[in-house]
Amino acid sequence: MIPFMSFRFSLVAAPLLILAYGVLRVLDGLDGSRGPGLAWTAGHLAFMAALVLFVQIFWRLRAMAGRDVLSTASAAVGTVGVVTLLGQFGVDIVVGFAAADHAAMTPLFEQVRSVPGMQPVLYDVGPYLFYLAQLALVGQLAAMRRVRAWLPVLVLAYLALPIADKDLMPLGAVFLLVAFLPFIRAARPAASLS
Rank of each mutant, 00 (worst) to 15 (best):
I2S: 10
P3T: 07
P3C: 08
F4R: 08
M5Q: 11
F7C: 08
F7M: 01
F7W: 01
S10N: 05
S10P: 00
L17E: 00
L17G: 00
L24M: 15
L27S: 03
G29L: 04
L30F: 14
G32H: 07
S33R: 03
P36C: 10
G37Y: 04
G37P: 04
A39K: 11
A39Y: 15
T41L: 11
T41Q: 13
A42G: 09
A42S: 15
L45C: 12
A46N: 04
F47V: 14
L51S: 09
L51H: 12
L51K: 06
L53A: 10
L53V: 00
F54I: 01
F54N: 11
V55Y: 01
I57F: 01
R60Y: 01
L61Q: 15
R67L: 11
D68M: 08
T72I: 03
T72E: 13
A73M: 10
A73V: 11
S74N: 09
S74T: 12
S74W: 07
V77I: 14
V80K: 02
G81M: 05
V82N: 08
V83I: 13
T84M: 00
L85E: 14
G87Q: 01
G87I: 09
V94I: 09
F97C: 03
H102R: 05
H102I: 00
H102Y: 14
A103R: 12
L108G: 13
L108W: 12
F109W: 15
S114F: 02
V115H: 13
M118Q: 10
Q119S: 13
Q119I: 05
P120D: 02
Y123N: 04
D124S: 15
V125G: 09
G126R: 08
P127S: 09
P127M: 04
Y128M: 11
L129V: 07
F130R: 12
Y131E: 15
L132Q: 06
A133H: 03
L135E: 08
A136K: 06
V138Q: 08
Q140Y: 03
Q140C: 06
L141A: 09
A143T: 09
M144T: 05
R145V: 03
R146A: 12
R146E: 10
R148M: 15
V155L: 06
A157M: 04
Y158H: 08
L161V: 06
P162T: 06
K166Y: 08
D167C: 00
D167K: 14
M169E: 04
M169T: 11
P170A: 06
A173Y: 08
V174Y: 04
V174R: 03
F175P: 12
L176Q: 07
V178T: 05
V178I: 14
F180W: 13
F180P: 03
L181C: 01
F183A: 05
F183W: 06
F183I: 02
I184D: 08
A187P: 09
P189N: 10
P189R: 13
L193W: 09
S194V: 04
